[in-house]
Amino acid sequence: MSRPTPPDPWSRFLAAEAGQRESEAEAALAELFRALPGRRPRPGFSDRVLLRLAARPSWFARPAARLALAAALVVVAISAALLLPLVAPLAGLIGPGGAIGFVVEGFVGLATRFADGLAAWSPLATAARAVGRALLEPRLAGLLVLQFLIAALALRGLVGVVSAQRSSAHAAH
């Protein structure tokens, strides 16, 4: 089978190699490489690289983070291995009946706390009842309304004084 005529630097390279003419062989080979079809990645390569730069590496991707996580898991595993023999007898004591008792006791405790919370309101209820009884007296009720009106008027006057002072201060500036 006949081959196509090879490029000239090719024959020079092989001839120089056969004749151990090193610099000639190097020069011919360099020429051959320069003429080899170039290789390029798919279009848009630089965009894809810059996109990867913009994406922050995940925390978990860092070797130090992975190491720390692995160390933490090892510590947890060792701790669990040490603690389990201590906890196991307790678990045996509880059993299914113990678990039901635990839930029932939990409900009872919750109800007791609720009742204690309601008891805290009883002094307030006593005070409210006393105020209610007093309000049923017409003289006391009239006095309270009068006090309310005086307080409202005093508050309004105070607001007026403060507003006037603020306006004059702004004008001075």
């Binding site: 081959r3 196509p4 090879p6 490029p7 630097p9 090719w10 020429e31 051959l32 003429a35 080899l36 079809p37 170039g38 290789r39 390029r40």
Partner: peptide, 27 residues
């Protein structure tokens, strides 16, 4: 040889020759 499209910019006569049999043999 790695199967890749050649750079179309490499269009010298020698490059064309190498892109054929000789180039594949060298790669």
């Amino acid at each position: 040889a790695p199967e890749l499209p050649a750079d179309p910019a490499a269009e010298s006569p020698l490059a064309r020759a190498l892109a054929r049999d000789a180039g594949r043999a060298l790669e």
